[in-house]
């Protein structure tokens, strides 16, 4: 098979999987764990599940990543996704301390990523 055909085949498979997950989440959101009785929980329940789907993609990169640098990138992205998750939870539950968690997580994730990249500089990762 030609390279173009392989690429298009993989693209088609991936599109089917991701669109399938999104449609499943949008059509039939699982009963959300914490807050059933709040207004607008339909929209935000779906939103939280899509962020969860994104973080599963980031977890796939952490699991599979061929080098250490890939894993560090995925950890960084995972931290930023959690900030978005906390922001959506703030709107849903009207409890302002979720955004405090988001700020603390942003600071701590930034420092840890800087430390990890310094660690990368001093070491050879040819796995």
């Amino acid at each position: 098979m030609k390279i173009e055909n392989v690429k298009i085949l993989r693209w088609a498979i991936g599109t089917v999987i991701i669109v399938g997950c999104i449609v499943f989440v949008l059509v039939k959101p699982l009963p959300f764990l914490f807050y059933h009785d709040l207004p607008n929980v339909g929209f935000f329940g779906r939103a939280l599940f899509i962020i969860l789907l994104s973080s599963f993609l980031a977890l796939y990169r952490i699991w599979k990543g061929p080098t250490g640098a890939d894993r560090v990138v995925a950890v960084d992205i995972f931290g930023i996704l959690i900030i978005g998750f906390c922001a959506v939870l703030t709107i849903t539950t009207k409890r302002s301390w979720y955004i405090d968690i988001a700020i603390a997580w942003a600071l701590q994730s930034f420092v840890s990523v800087l430390a990890l990249s310094k660690y990368l500089e001093g070491k050879d990762f040819d796995e």
Binding site: F110, K118, L120, E121, D124, F125
Partner: peptide
């Protein structure tokens, strides 16, 4: 953070 990771990866020989 992106800048630091890119430089670290390049120095690590990726």
């Amino acid at each position: 953070a992106a800048h630091a990771i890119a430089r670290g990866a390049h120095r690590a020989g990726v």
